[in-house]
């Protein structure tokens, strides 16, 4: 794609996304888009460690939960603005990613993946079985409700959904920018090399462990911020909502289906699949419970079966072919 064309697409996207809340008056429809953006953002964050660096982390949901809990607890009990709380939550998540990485990056392949699931499991059980965490009442499985303290930007509380939409849109744009920046910088080259051959990468002067830890921390930080946002948006946290396995798997699936290691892939997959999930639930959710999941799973299986390399690599290859034959 030429430079100009890219900017035109970018402009269209910008105008559309900024004016969207004015065109969509139905709050449920807007929620639809908030969901899309949130998942696109989370998948973009996962892609840094899971795609660029090729480390199949399956437990990224743990950082989402940490972000949600830290900012919520601090808001509820300490009256700390979620904007500050979420940076702290991100810091905690990055720190845990660092600790975990030090232990698990020495493991190879599927053992690494399994260990990330194990950590999610441990933290989830820990939160589930504790009434108090670090002196704050978190009420185990029940979770905490976020009290309404009046519409305020500082409290990240709004009566409508429009403001939430713009916040997550900003998250998404910044996340995408970070991902692009990493991909095109020194770090991007190093992560891509680590993805295929760690030994050869280190022989070229790259501190492989350090790079993986850095990627993992950035990914964890981004994911945790998403968790904080989500908690403010739905005004509650509980282990099943913010520390579930399905969330971790969903994030990973979007990135994998869209095209691991590509900038646009995770975004495209999230934009297609998150609404599909919502739509199926809206259609079948009331008639037969669970049926929507069957269709959703079937759709995922078909995509993985027919385009295993991911949607975006597939589409861009086809586009190239079309251009080639047009000439």
């Amino acid at each position: 794609m030429s430079r100009n064309k890219k900017w035109i697409w970018f402009g269209i996207g910008a105008v559309f996304s900024i004016t969207l809340p004015m065109m969509v008056s139905n709050p449920y429809a807007l929620q639809f888009f908030i969901n899309m953006l949130l998942f696109a953002y989370l998948a973009t964050g996962w892609n840094i460690i899971g795609g660029y660096a090729g480390q199949m982390a399956l437990g990224n949901g743990v950082y989402f939960g940490i972000g949600a809990y830290v900012s919520t607890v601090l808001f509820v009990y300490e009256n700390l603005s979620p904007w500050v709380g979420m940076v702290l939550g991100g810091g905690v998540a990055a720190f845990i990613a660092l600790l975990m990485g030090r232990m698990t990056f020495r493991l190879s392949g599927s053992y690494f993946s399994l260990s990330t699931v194990a950590v999610l499991h441990v933290i989830r059980l820990f939160v589930l079985s504790s009434n108090r965490l670090f002196g704050y009442e978190t009420r185990g499985a029940q979770g905490i409700y976020v009290p309404w303290r009046g519409q305020s930007f500082l409290n990240m509380q709004f009566e409508g959904k429009t403001e939430y939409y713009y916040i997550i849109l900003a998250f998404f744009v910044i996340g995408l920018f970070i991902s692009w920046w990493i991909k095109t910088s020194r770090m991007g080259y190093y992560l891509a090399a680590i993805n295929t051959n760690q030994e050869a990468t280190s022989s070229l002067g790259v501190n492989v462990m350090g790079m993986k830890l850095k990627a993992s921390c950035i990914s964890a930080f981004m994911t945790a911020l998403g968790g904080s946002f989500y908690a403010q948006f739905i005004m509650m946290v509980d282990p099943s909502r913010v520390l579930g396995y399905d969330l971790s798997v969903q994030i990973m699936l979007y990135a994998a289906i869209g095209g691991r290691g590509t900038l646009a892939g995770p975004v495209i997959a999230a934009f297609l699949l998150a609404p599909l999930n919502d739509l199926l639930r809206a259609v079948f959710g009331t008639t037969v419970s669970g049926l929507s999941l069957v269709f959703y799973g079937l759709a995922l299986m078909l995509i993985i079966y027919f385009i295993p390399q991911g949607i975006w690599p597939y589409v861009s290859e086809k586009l190239k072919e079309m251009k080639g034959s047009a000439k």
């Binding site: 020194r186 080259y189 891509a192 993805n195 051959n197 030994e199 050869a200 070229l204 790259v206």
Partner: peptide
């Protein structure tokens, strides 16, 4: 041989060149 099969020949070499270069 241990090529980075996901990268072009140039990008393979860039990974090495970054060792002594300040920028991409």
């Amino acid at each position: 041989v241990k090529p980075f099969v996901n990268l072009s020949v140039l990008d393979n070499t860039v990974v090495g060149a970054l060792n002594q270069c300040k920028d991409v």
